[in-house]
Nucleic acid binder design. Structure first.
Lengths: 333, 333
DNA sequence: CTGAAAGCGCTTACAG
DNA sequence: CTGAAAGCGCTTACAG
């Protein structure tokens, strides 16, 4: 049960501790025989570098945190964040770094900031979600680098790391697609007011409508979830009974909205065209299948991983990449 | 960005490093004025104990790993593991320990065992799942204590930590319930052959049937997922077209099985009664709602957390608790 | 190319 | 009750 140390490896291999360290660090200028002896001893003893000692010496932990909203772990909204998560984990694996998921709650105090300050990990990726927006403030001046997936609504340092998709452009795409389909009586189901990506989608949507000379549409807000999408659609329908096009700014909300439209006797897309945002799995399994603005979620996660790794390792890198959004044409619009 | 150290705190407070350490460790026999000065300095500097240094000194990391199958993160089967996860996380929070989720893959080599050997965490909880059964072997002689939720199919040390539910008793409950409902032509959709809990359910089922003098039923195997439940049901139906009762040993498989039965023109429960296992959310939203054997999943997670914490802290504790399973009567049987 | 030694930040046995 | 000092396991600048 007692872990072997570098001294044990050195003793078994018959070399100094320094030499053993060099071999295990991959240095090449070591006598081949010594090198082989060290490798052999390490394997035989089941040696693994003590991460605490390495870190204390000024090295890296070899672990990056992925901070996610705890609630999401068992809800359907998970489809968004799990895609990002998957990409991020793959990116970290590729960098030989251990991804470490930290569940965060909206009511848990400063556990997460404290953990980051304790130096156990080299950096963190935060997947922006409505439930954990409060973390943004607590982590603005974090001692370890943080990559935001989705821009938080706090003042960030100019060199902050933010990976985002082109939400503004996506909003424009949605407006243009509905206009191209001949729709003129439009409405938007926006996301939470406290989320910057949600606001960017609204801005893009409005700008494009203005440019096309279409009346500014009424806005209702949801929380990116299916249930909130249904509720928002009901409100929108009451306010604007003869609308013929809806931009629901998440696929889950689009799903909820379509259910409400259908229940109200509206056919989709013939009576009302609906466009979503995200392009998660549900978009292809719904009936009708969902026309939507695609965010490259897994890519966003992967880029977040690559970016934070570069920063941790002191390499130059674009700290605020914006990934392209594209329109995916299906049946609903 | 440079983290303050204990020396900084001591200097600001005007005391020795030793005294500062004592105050922060919560020792009471310290002069009140010094104590206050230290507390103040620590807060002002945003001091947090360097976990690497503490660990190296022989202390604890203050973090426990939760090892979960990566694939599960975005599939519906997540309902089982997220319940356990939630309970475990709550239990760790209560113990002031940071839960750290490590996604594991079936093909990832020995990343996880190596991470555990690196000493970055104090212990681990593994939620047994089909996809990561291979980890069981790699972790049998782990240097840090491991709590298994669900007994793995490897030879464990007698003092191994295993949190399980009474799968055997649950199997008996299912058999008795179907028998009580007057069913005599029974079949079982069992779980994966390489999972001990799945095997325990079969044994309980068989023993109870034998005791009741009912014919041993045919067995088909699924993988605890909805799709595999459908496939298994189709096979079972072909083999035994006039069965009138099925024990599907996970709720998801029961869900899949019922769909197949209904598609085949059998009414549930009048033609065929179906009993599941787990009692996850879907059991109450299906049509008909599912009669099932309940495992207290969240409790299992919580008990796993409490048990590993006790072991890490050197406290005495029951290392192999078995939680009770109960029958939850709904519409399907 | 190899080894002896310093030092990362902490905790605690020891001396006072 | 308080402080000086040792030592956890590692990496690397320094000397040879």
């Amino acid at each position: 049960m007692t872990r072997p140390t570098l001294v044990d490896v050195a003793r078994v291999a018959g070399v100094s501790r320094a030499t053993a360290a060099r071999v295990l660090a991959g240095e090449t200028k070591v006598d081949a025989r010594m090198s082989a002896a060290v490798e052999h001893a390490a394997k035989e003893l089941g040696y693994e570098t003590n991460s605490a000692a390495r870190m204390l010496r000024g090295g890296r932990a070899g672990a990056i945190a992925l901070i996610v909203a705890f609630n999401e772990l068992d809800s359907l909204t998970g489809t968004f964040f799990t895609s990002v998560l998957k990409g991020a984990a793959k990116g970290l694996y590729a960098g030989e770094v251990q991804p470490v998921l930290l569940p965060a709650d909206h009511d848990e105090g400063d556990r997460i900031p404290r953990f980051l300050r304790s130096g156990a990990i080299d950096g963190a990726i935060i997947i922006l979600q409505h439930e954990i927006t409060h973390l943004a403030e607590a982590l603005v001046d974090s001692p370890v680098p943080i990559a935001w997936v989705g821009r938080p609504r706090v003042a960030l340092a100019p060199d902050a790391i933010v990976i985002d998709s082109d939400n503004y452009g996506g909003g424009r795409l949605a407006a243009r697609a509905l206009a191209d389909a001949g729709r003129r009586r439009l409405g938007i189901i926006a996301g939470p007011r406290d989320m910057e990506p949600a606001r960017d989608r609204i801005r893009g949507w409005r700008d494009e409508l203005a440019q096309l000379g279409i009346d500014p549409s009424p806005i209702v807000h949801g929380e990116f979830t299916l249930v909130s999408g249904s509720a928002a659609m009901a409100r929108l329908l009451k306010r604007y009974p003869d609308l013929d096009g809806v931009f629901a700014s998440s696929d889950l909300m689009a799903n909820g909205a379509i259910r409400v439209l259908q229940a109200a006797g509206r056919s989709v897309p013939s009576d009302v065209a609906v466009i979503g945002f995200d392009d998660v799995a549900i978009a292809t399994t719904m009936d009708p299948t969902l026309t939507t603005v695609r965010q490259p979620l897994e890519d966003m996660g992967r880029v977040a991983a690559e970016t934070i790794l570069a920063v941790v390792q002191g390499r130059e890198v674009d700290r605020q990449p914006i990934l392209t959004t594209t329109l995916v044409q299906r049946e609903s619009a």
